[in-house]
């Protein structure tokens, strides 16, 4: 089963950490990527901060294109920072890998993938 390990936290918080703490976090990601590479295909994505995003809101009516707005508007809570996706034996296996990137500044969600195409596929 493919699982997605999604990462939530506050954009910019990582950059505010002292160098040694940043290195700790990066070491976790390095180790996870190494481990996943050994197992086969995986996908990992880090998003840029929300300031760089543009939103597409639903079209107001059928004959209009979707609305492009300059948000997202400031969100004081955590936001979606990035994710990993890979094929795991089962939930426990996926959780064991997710632990490698756990840190006090992020919340992780491990969720099975219903469908995937591209580099890894759910075929």
């Amino acid at each position: 089963m493919i699982y997605a390990i999604t990462i939530y936290g506050e954009a910019g918080l990582f950059e505010t950490l002292p160098k040694e703490r940043q290195d700790e976090v990066l070491a976790g990601h390095g180790a996870l990527q190494e481990a996943l590479k050994k197992r086969g295909e995986f996908v990992s994505i880090k998003l840029m901060p929300p300031t760089s995003a543009v939103m597409l809101e639903p079209a107001p009516s059928a004959d209009h294109p979707p609305l492009i707005v300059d948000g997202p508007y400031a969100e004081t809570k955590e936001s979606f920072l990035g994710f990993y996706a890979a094929d795991f034996e089962n939930l426990d296996d996926a959780l064991a890998y997710a632990k490698m990137i756990s840190s006090p500044v992020v919340r992780l969600e491990v969720r099975p993938v219903a469908w995937a195409g591209g580099a890894i596929s759910s075929e």
Binding site: L13, T16, L17, P18, R21, P104
Partner: peptide, 16 residues
């Protein structure tokens, strides 16, 4: 623990 938290304080300071 405290330097993880300090980062949050620094981050929230202007708004707070």
């Amino acid at each position: 623990m405290s330097d993880w938290l300090e980062a949050t304080f620094t981050q929230q300071r202007p708004q707070a």
